[in-house]
Design a protein around this nucleic acid. Sequence first.
DNA 1: CGCTCCCTTGAATGAGTTCAAGGCGCGTGG
DNA 2: CCACGCGCCTTGAACTCATTCAAGGGAGCG
Lengths: 246, 246
Amino acid sequence: MESIFHKVDCLHCRLSELCLSNGLNKEEIQQLTSIVKSKRPIKSDEFLYRQNDQCESFYVVRSGSFRSFISNTDGSEQTISFYLSGELMGLDSLQNGRFYCSVVAMETSTVCELPLAKLNEIYLQIPAVQAQMTRIIGREIASDHDKIVLLGNRSATEKMATFLLMLSQRYYSLGYSGTRFNLSMRRYDIANFLGLTIETVSRQLSSLSKQGIITVDQRGIQIDNMDLLKTIVEPCLPKRVSSINK
Amino acid sequence: MESIFHKVDCLHCRLSELCLSNGLNKEEIQQLTSIVKSKRPIKSDEFLYRQNDQCESFYVVRSGSFRSFISNTDGSEQTISFYLSGELMGLDSLQNGRFYCSVVAMETSTVCELPLAKLNEIYLQIPAVQAQMTRIIGREIASDHDKIVLLGNRSATEKMATFLLMLSQRYYSLGYSGTRFNLSMRRYDIANFLGLTIETVSRQLSSLSKQGIITVDQRGIQIDNMDLLKTIVEPCLPKRVSSINK
DNA sequence: CGCTCCCTTGAATGAGTTCAAGGCGCGTGG
DNA sequence: CCACGCGCCTTGAACTCATTCAAGGGAGCG
């Protein structure tokens, strides 16, 4: 019955270190696996869930990518996050049990579903899951704060450069190239995420391209001069104990 | 020894409904009280903690107000939140145990200190504390997302109006007047919070004042036409099931 | 082939910033 | 008690960066 689409197996999942199962032993991971539900793939522009929906489950991106956004009374929207593989969606429902954002797929994507009821049981059985969830929540809060800094403080150039560097680092830590990747989002999504217009995004990409920092071909991005890119971004970064550069 | 400044007593604290003790019975509240430490009052511009400090405790505002902000490599800073009575500070350390923001007092203020070690013990003894903490975390995430919408999408007028309305509602729910209050923050703090300059903040306040919506006298704000203020803010609000207006 | 969607580029416009000057309140010291 | 200085805030004028408006290119698809 369950899982006609994919066999869920956290133990052999290449994302296990990023995901909830991080820090668990074999046995515990198998226990976790047992509560994870599989869903049919979600097509581009299809909703995973909608703002104000009752939250019954959290979701982890297994493949593909998603965009979360808040719709306002006047019909405008604000993109809050892009989600790549291994990232957990739905935390903003913790307040009152309803999703605070809508989430749509940006390409055909798959997710692992974590039913809340079962998740709460697991917390009691495996404290390490709770601990990992806490870290994930902390990561979410910290990244929201980074986003606030980006939106509040920065020029279009800095926003664009930060966006590219952020993506580069996320792809890299997923095991992909950090210097060559395809954007799964449209210009509109980027603009909306960064608090800019699509024209400005387009111009910024052209400008970075003219400076020889990147090569742009449609959705394809190649970073040709990572050092220069980091030079643009650096002033924007929070002072931290451990440097972000690697 | 402990608590030479204030007797901590969650049971008779007027903030108990907003705070961690919400939803607990008498006995449980007394148990919670036992782990809460008191600290000497913190003076204006004094740090409660600094970005990158190891987090040993969370803090709840008992009286006064605080500002949290992130310092960047280039020396700039971005205000993340203002904290009023009953609000919990320190959640952004959940990721890795270090504070992601600095927090300073905006006036002489007092806090209740919640040592993490003891808090984690209480979770096991009183599940309702854990549940309430989860709601508080959810509230934090949701309010961060609101802030992202505000910074990403909105004109200076809308930002200013939203800021005032937000404060009004928070003061009201603390039992103070929602139409007449003193700002504890300087213009600089407001500007930095909203991603504007102090001149723009000043002009926006003047403009709202000229329209008869508010009266401004230094830090003192009086809202003279709440309906008009809400009219400015409304388009910016997320579509929600339950309206924010009351 | 022709349509649509997405993206780029140019030119004009404008919201907010920057620069500059001045006012007000308050504490300190003469 | 007043003078002075300092921090904080307001206001005006010039400027600038991003937006808006407008046009057109190119990929993908029926």
